[in-house]
Nucleic acid binder design. Structure first.
Lengths: 198, 198
DNA sequence: TAATCTTCTTAGCAAATGGCAAGAAATCCC
DNA sequence: GGGATTTCTTGCCATTTGCTAAGAAGATTA
């Protein structure tokens, strides 16, 4: 156990930015998180297991993926530093996960257990609002992605990603990015060539 | 005002099915909802306005759509009876909505105001869990749709929808369904022809 | 009922994307 | 350092899907 919290300033800042609240409250929340490191290619959650923790990513990149029947893996989401990541369904319904959560690079994360989260959720109104807002923002980003899948070409989605999350391209293999964008790595390669000629 | 609640049995059943709880609690929650009817083509929420209520759909079909820059409308979601519908971001962040919520057929819905929902959320642990579970399930369904957009062909998505929500095809115009599936109405028409020849 | 409007289907062609395979480049690991 | 593995690019061709336009079918409204 950690009698003294290590440096969790970024986590506290993140909490306040998503849902403004008194600093002490944010500190109280952050105190429930434990630091953890994950090496590249290691899993924070494997298909079939129950997610027991939720994570804030301080440094490094992670991805969530599923294996489809053909044996391909489909990257559902890519997470960059300063974001919150959680397998919602497995974590909250306490069911085996259908997804894998894997470190794409070495990562430093903060983890909170289900019990600690439940205690905060029912005991602290600020955390309730924070948790709800996190779910809402997650919904929003998924919804935006669906709209983008419907309305935009692969090239437009590529351009948008390079604009909004340029760092991803420096740390995440293109085949993973391609899957996330909903195209093959072959197509992504072509798009990049055409894109760079402009 | 309604001194006596009309028949909200289905709503109560819906609440308990999503998050099991004592009947009285579900009744207490349901009592905060007011019945409302919406005629075909009418809006429950228009772009630019702030969503002030959340809805349970008892009968009828609704859709959520956005207008893209080219003047096309993109159907983000289709809701069928016995489901919960809400413009999360506008409702919870109290910001103007970027989306429209429109009745596709005449609908009977139950509406709950923001204030009533907040009171329940902070005052009743069962409702907290219920609300959280609703957000989680919404996330799940969005995520499944993204995977399906990435991994499946338009024909497979069509087949899946006809399997999972056959009633939609009896009440929602194909052009709306096509947009929801991420294809043009032309493509959907082609797919339906080929599909029916099997 | 007739006129109008919307929805649905069809056709032809263009553009985007996938599947496969091979080779180049980069990275990993002993 | 060097062989093995993974990642990335490229080419070729097939398939899917979009775009445009037109007409048929169906629904709505005066």
């Amino acid at each position: 156990m950690y009698s003294q919290a290590p440096n969790n300033k970024e986590l506290i800042t993140f909490i306040c930015s998503l849902m403004p609240m008194p600093l002490e409250k944010a500190q109280e929340i952050a105190a429930q998180f434990r630091p953890r490191t994950v090496k590249r290619h290691e899993y924070l959650l494997e298909e079939g297991r129950i997610g027991k923790e939720a994570f804030y990513i301080e440094t490094g990149f992670m991805r969530v993926f599923v294996n489809d029947p053909d044996g391909n893996d489909v990257t559902i989401n890519i997470f960059q530093p300063n974001s919150f990541m959680n397998n919602l369904v497995s974590f909250f319904r306490r069911e085996p996960s259908e997804e894998n959560v894997q470190a794409v690079t070495d990562c430093a994360v903060w983890a909170i257990s289900y019990d600690a989260l439940q205690t905060l959720f029912h005991g602290m109104p600020e955390f309730r609002e924070f948790g709800r807002m996190m779910l809402i923002m997650s919904n929003l980003s998924l919804q935006d992605r669906i709209v983008s899948m419907i309305r935009n070409t692969a090239e437009e989605r590529y351009a948008a990603l390079i604009q909004s999350k340029p760092e991803v391209f420096q740390h995440v293999p293109l085949k993973i990015i391609a899957s996330y964008l909903g195209i093959t790595d072959t197509s992504l390669s072509r798009i990049r060539r055409e894109f760079s000629q402009k």
